[in-house]
Design a protein around this nucleic acid. Structure first.
Lengths: 206, 206
DNA sequence: ACTCAATGTTGACGCTGACAACATCAAGAT
DNA sequence: ATCTTGATGTTGTCAGCGTCAACATTGAGT
């Protein structure tokens, strides 16, 4: 041994996570291969098993990291807003901005089997945190009168659906807009949706 | 030979397609296995190669079938509408209705690698047909004055994003609504978005 | 110095997608 | 009636994958 490759990697876990994210971006989460991740990290094909129970748990870890960054992105975006309405719109922009900056994480978060997600509690909790950011924006807008009172959930689902749809369609190349234009479009669409939410009361039966 | 299992299957292609759809629904598009499809169809592990170039082409065929049914679903839904506005809303409901009825097809259509889709022309054409149904609804609404004039594309993208987001979130279990409630929610959200589209002019720079 | 738990490696097994070679059948040509 | 041919299904094979088991290496605490 020349010492160039120490036996212990010291933070192989992080290295594997980064390699996994990069690999997902190159080949998609379907062709994603645990052995290739190990290869890129410069370790044997079984080394990842010391840090993750298996392939699925590695992907779940990527997804968890993604939910973390999603929450950060939304909170950072809405921090610049001055009114509840503006903060809600910016929150949606933060969602799409995250999707544009970390498309590979988004794939791991939503393009993976549901049975895996059910099995992993951490991921659900982090997803809940992200949703809570949006829900708080809705609640604040309702409290200030910027949105009609009532059950906030339909409003939150609607807003989430819109930004999630933009994120997914953009990520799969179905929106012919560059990132900057996509964000501007998101802002515009969110503003339109916000106006519409005020123009009609939320579904009364729920 | 008892004659029970004729050597030639006669329409193995359709049998394989159906088996593939069922398998996607059971294990997801990621764990989807070409050999298991063949097994369920009662043929050898290499028989599918006589009808599809490989695993990806079989999945692409499922996606193409999905785009076909999506177009049908939207056209059937909007046929009941009496005004351009109502037809547009119903078109969105048709999108979500398709997603609820054929979730396995939706997975093949959007949860698959993009390099495959680029490679397959038929799928892009069928996707374009489906989008055209939506776009025509937008154009009709603009012509009748139900929607503001101008570039229809941002309006179409917004509407598509909303229903696509609802479809994807619902399909991944993130919207705690049963199918009927999901459709009602879609109608309500679409109506709200429609109102918002009128409350503000489309993005002028595009 | 010794122990030991953590971490990385090697080897193996069954499964998969894909290729090549062969078998079977239907139908038209001779 | 026989031959030929192309389409369709099968068997055999290979490398690569995820995962388990057994072994090797290392650093930290005694």
């Amino acid at each position: 041994m020349t010492g160039a490759q120490p036996y212990h990697h010291l933070n192989l876990r992080k290295t594997l996570l980064d390699a996994a994210v990069a690999l997902i971006g190159e080949v998609g989460p379907r062709a994603f291969t645990l052995r290739e991740v190990a290869r890129r990290a410069g370790v044997s094909h079984n080394a990842p098993y010391r840090h993750f129970a298996g392939k699925d748990e590695l992907l779940a870890a990527v997804a968890a990291e993604g939910f973390d960054r999603l929450t950060e992105s939304m909170e950072a975006a809405l921090a610049g807003g001055q009114s509840p309405r503006e903060r809600l719109e910016l929150c949606g922009c933060g969602y799409v901005d995250f999707a544009l900056r970390f498309p590979n994480h988004l794939l791991a978060m939503f393009d993976l089997p549901q049975e895996l997600r059910e099995h992993c509690r951490q991921e659900r909790e982090l997803g809940g945190s992200a949703f809570a950011v949006l829900l708080n924006c809705i609640l604040a807008a309702q409290a200030s009168g910027d949105l009609p009172a009532g059950n906030p959930m339909p409003l939150a689902w609607t807003a989430w659906s819109l930004v999630h749809g933009i994120a997914k369609l953009s990520g799969s190349g179905n929106l012919p807009l560059d990132p900057q234009a996509t964000l501007a479009f998101t802002r515009s669409a969110a503003a339109g949706l916000f106006s519409g939410m005020n123009a009609q009361a939320p579904d009364p039966e729920r």
